[in-house]
Design a protein around this nucleic acid. Sequence first.
DNA 1: ACCAATTTAGACCGGTCGTCTCTAAATATC
DNA 2: GATATTTAGAGACGACCGGTCTAAATTGGT
Lengths: 211, 211
Amino acid sequence: MQTPTTPSKRRGRPPKVPRANPDTRDALIRGGIEVLTEQGFVSTGIDGVLKRVGVPKGSFYHYFDSKEAFGHAVLSRYADYFARKLDHRLLSAELPPLERLRRFTQDAQEGMARHHYRRGCLVGNLGQEVTLLPAGFDERLEAILQDWQRRVADCLRLAQAHGELAADTDCDTLAAFFWIGWEGAVQRARLTREPTPLALFSQEFFARLSR
Amino acid sequence: MQTPTTPSKRRGRPPKVPRANPDTRDALIRGGIEVLTEQGFVSTGIDGVLKRVGVPKGSFYHYFDSKEAFGHAVLSRYADYFARKLDHRLLSAELPPLERLRRFTQDAQEGMARHHYRRGCLVGNLGQEVTLLPAGFDERLEAILQDWQRRVADCLRLAQAHGELAADTDCDTLAAFFWIGWEGAVQRARLTREPTPLALFSQEFFARLSR
DNA sequence: ACCAATTTAGACCGGTCGTCTCTAAATATC
DNA sequence: GATATTTAGAGACGACCGGTCTAAATTGGT
């Protein structure tokens, strides 16, 4: 999967202790996703990210202008990552459309369990800090949610075409309803450290669809 | 509602500038509700509460052992206040039970608008900080949610008796579903600064009930 | 061989803010 | 007058914050 020679022809002073991921910027963003998803933006210090990734502060400010810029980079990466994950499920032809969405909720259950319910949804978590975040984050967060919502709405329209969903259903509204509730379920699962809220919401959501 | 004489026979050194609420402890808790509901627990400093209430630091530590103890006091007060508000709506005989719950969601819309969507639900907000809070807060928060859930479940059972809700509905599950989603809606409304998520969730929730 | 660009290294800075302590002052009650 | 209660407010003391700065170590270009 990698160039066999792994020549590591990377410019600049080499790391004192070689890291698993030689791409420092990338490593910082990945670490940022983990930390911010657990602790949020405001109460997370740069030093915490640095220590986790094993990178000195100089490198951080070499790649990012500020904590705020870093936050935006992390957010963008997360949004992309998540959109891909979503599409992977929702566009796969192996299952009927509605079942795809249900499987997404199952995937998420496994994901939260894997992290012992300490991490939630980065977008949901930062959303809670909206009054404390630098300007611009709020629009960004809402835009990401709208993007995910659109993807779910498209899937619901496919479900309509398959006859899984009543033809008169407003798929955009239903997708919004899904995400509002789903974020609530993630939040609650994080509090209880149990999969129950996720399972319960999923169960009830699908049970209440008509046709 | 108060003793008519308002004798203010309060022991101890009087405040330099007399406050509207002479009960210092009470004033601190009320102020705490406001601040914590906006900013959460971790990133809120005692000084911020003090300044808002107009109380010196010495008074604070006279009434509370620590920030943590203060947090619990604030939480208890909020839980009580909210439970009363909930019961006021859900037990009133003026409306059919299901309509009472719907009216509760309308009240909440007005409440959030009144604070310009800067405040959410204290329990939901603190829940998001669960990984950062002192031990014990998580159980407390979950217990409060369970309490509210029980109250809603009772209301739903009344709705069943009124024939507003299918007799085979599991009211406990439905109440859990409601709160999971509703907290999500509050969170989202805080992000968008609009009532739309609240209205949309309410609309869809009630539209999807059977019978 | 040399210089420029890149990247890592990490000490350090100034400041904010954190919780909490301490002493004194002013009042009510006994 | 003595004691308990409550308010007043300075300030201790450290943790930590985001961010800067200079140096070192490497590659690539010429």
